[in-house]
């Protein structure tokens, strides 16, 4: 029995060595941290002891620790305001709406009348949110 268990462990080790794990795949060349963020969100959501308001903070911490992912400093701020109404100031003007999605270099906002806007963080100057940073509305 013990021999069989050791054999299974060995097979698992070989499989892991031959097949890149999820993190290696996510952090590989051309990776997009959105997939990683989605993965972490699901992971943290499964832990009922973590308040939903602090999930985005934990995700930001993990991303900072992992490093190496090229993203705008606005991505972390936007992520902590997911599903909140914000005012984003760009080089062209301001956009007011609810943040529905965040990527490394963009945020998707839903304006009044359900109009979708994709904001480029490369030309973003400021993000203004209501209330203390990261507070769930």
């Amino acid at each position: 029995m013990a021999t069989q268990s050791n054999l299974e462990e060995l097979v698992n080790l070989i499989e892991k060595a031959l097949r890149p794990g999820p993190l290696a795949r996510l952090l590989g060349e051309g990776s997009d941290s959105k997939e990683l963020v989605d993965l972490l969100t699901e992971l943290f959501k499964s832990d009922a002891t973590i308040p939903s308001a602090s999930i985005s903070g934990k995700i930001n911490t993990v991303l900072e620790i992992l490093g190496g992912i090229d993203s705008s400093p606005f991505a972390a701020i936007a992520r902590s305001n997911l599903n909140n109404q914000v005012l984003i100031t760009t080089t062209v003007g301001t956009i007011k709406g609810v943040i529905t999605e965040v990527g490394n270099w963009y945020a998707v906002l839903t304006e009044d009348e359900n109009i979708t806007v994709i904001v480029n963080f490369a030309n973003t100057l400021a993000i203004e949110s209501e209330g203390p940073e990261g507070e769930a509305k």
Binding site: T90, T91, V92, G93, I95, E111, I115, T116, V117, I118, V119, N120, A122, N123, T124
Partner: peptide
Amino acid sequence: TSVVAYIRV
């Protein structure tokens, strides 16, 4: 792409 501030659908 680098000069686009935002895109509205």
